[in-house]
Write a protein that binds this DNA or RNA. Structure first.
Lengths: 339, 339
DNA sequence: CTGAAAGCGCTTACAG
DNA sequence: CTGAAAGCGCTTACAG
């Protein structure tokens, strides 16, 4: 079924068929009606390759996420996909971003596919050197991450600097002074930013930052939160509270503490970041900072489409607020202060 | 950068460049070397639209999953993507399969994009009527689901009939006789099959099947496992064990039982299905049936690529074994039997 | 408002 | 082993 057949059935030229589909206002109403009826009846859809070859548009967006193992990226993908598909775009999702080589492969693939735009989500990709491969790619890019300074791409993210502050203040107001941190993958932008925000907050409240109270794990694996917590449990004196940089890490840490016969929150309070559904189903429930993933994903998709429609649009940076979700994993510190 | 430029630089015709790329053995070794060197240096990649227009091949596979909220589909997507991208294919993932309309939209979209093959994962899609929209689509399809009878598509799945049997026998051998079921979405093939397998097993062991002991929820939401469990807790006498049709439901059910002041497994044992990572981090740990998602996804991708390469390949059906994972949510029944 | 024609960038018989 | 030519299915100035 091609445009020629439709033209023949309708008794017009293929130019007119094409116009009836793409620029209906240019076609006589009656003719247009007839053509569109035939199109509909026959289920004809223009060949995307012929179209793409001519227009350079593909109606395809690439989404890059570090891993679908972390539910927040599943939500991100669903949010973006539902918005984009509603607007006639398809989403190609690239996940399992393990190495720089893999990233290079992905970028090559994106480039050769000639997508209309790119969403870069989660800072798995934002280690040093992520920008060069993208340099001459020449399509709009939106990052789901906070990119400081002058960047060529727009970005949207949760205001996690404030989020970190809220998390730590929650612990501090509960009278905790021996606070440990389980950071995520070293080197990621998000890790550095949260680390910096954490130190700044702790300093502000005159809280000593013991070197042994900083450990790190991998965002995508609960198990690494467990391992990180093991290290903290070897420190003397024990921390009375732990802030894990995401919920996966926090959930692993909670299990570790319980396995060692200690109690959360009685012996150690734990707070996470993200608010993944699982946090509400473990016990105690996980106190955390909510991140509106779905909303962010949709807004990112929207921004991208706007940039595609109007390439001259200037770079935008949007920060969404986050929210403290208090459940059972944090409580007031009743231990004598040693530090 | 197009093929013409490469040809000019190499001092050959565009035909020769094309051949050097696509059918290297047809080109003089020296010429070929020269051309390929220029191609590499310039970063030239053939325009996929021109190519697609000519060959009808797109190097794109569509994956349809019910939702990325359930981590098993995240794994499925990652598994398929990593295998396919290694073989030069991209994956377009369609998720959030809420309604039949949405399904129709997805199928329309897939059709107009002219993908090379389709993977249909998770039986969210396999309600009645899922086959018609696919009827004349004319590309290889592999389903991640067990499709009985004579179908036109190949399928691969875990042998969940045996899995259901293993789960129930585990409970039965622990001396449980009052066993309740939390089934998933009614109407789905997977639900019907597991239900049938469950009844068959219970009958085999002469276990009464109380009507009130069958409730159902939605696979994708832990919360609906909670709600379903609430219904079971209103039944007299209480079941001593519950088999939930997936882990999300099971995790919701456990939370419900604990919230009502009862103990898992002391008062009620719970077993799930899937073995999602979270199951190892709640307390008690979730006893469940492992489903090798990653393996299934890769095998599905492999089958699909084989069918694309050799369209005459006959329909294949593969069932992978599952495995009982015993954690803390099940234990021996010590209550006096009433039934 | 409509049609004939050029051309998007490539692949592949065909001829040599 | 290589090149000239046709053509994949469409869109869009251009002319009328």
């Amino acid at each position: 079924m091609d445009i020629r057949e439709i033209a023949k059935k309708a008794g017009v030229s293929i130019s007119t068929v094409s116009r009836a589909i793409n620029q209906p206002h240019l076609v006589n109403k009656k003719t247009r009606g007839k053509i569109l009826a035939i199109v509909k009846e026959s289920g004809y859809v223009p060949n995307p390759f012929a179209r793409g070859l001519l227009t350079g548009k593909t109606s395809t967006i690439a989404l890059v996420v570090p891993t679908l193992k972390n539910p927040i990226f599943g939500e991100t993908a669903e949010g973006a996909e539902s918005y984009l598909s509603f607007h006639g775009y398809s989403l190609i999702t690239y996940s399992s971003l393990a190495s720089m080589e893999r990233y290079q492969t992905i970028v090559d693939n994106i480039r050769s596919r000639k997508v209309d735009g790119i969403i870069l989500a989660g800072s798995g990709i934002f280690q040093r050197g992520y920008q060069e491969p993208l340099e001459d790619i020449n399509v709009p890019i939106v990052a789901i991450e906070y990119l400081p300074g002058n960047t060529t791409m727009s970005c949207i993210y949760v205001d996690d600097i404030t989020g970190v502050k809220m998390a730590l203040e929650h612990l501090i107001f509960l009278n905790h002074r021996r606070i440990a941190l389980i950071a995520g993958n070293p080197g990621m932008i998000v890790t550095k930013r949260r680390l910096e925000a954490a130190y700044k907050t702790l300093e502000f409240y005159n809280i000593d930052i013991k070197e042994e109270y900083l450990v790190s794990g991998l965002y995508a694996h609960m198990e690494s939160g467990y391992t990180a917590m093991e290290k903290l449990l070897a420190v003397d004196p024990l921390p009375t509270a732990v802030f894990a940089f995401n919920d996966m890490l926090a959930i692993g840490a909670i299990k570790c503490i319980k396995d060692k016969g200690l109690s959360v929150p009685h012996d150690i309070s734990i707070i996470g970041f993200d608010n993944i559904p699982t946090g509400g189903y473990i016990s105690p429930g996980l106190t955390t900072i909510n991140q509106p993933c779905l909303d962010i994903a949709e807004k990112a998709a929207k921004m991208l489409l706007e940039q595609i429609a109007k390439p001259a649009t200037s770079v935008r940076k949007i920060l969404l607020p986050c929210e403290l979700i208090i459940r059972g994993s944090t409580s007031e510190n009743r231990k004598k202060q040693v530090s």
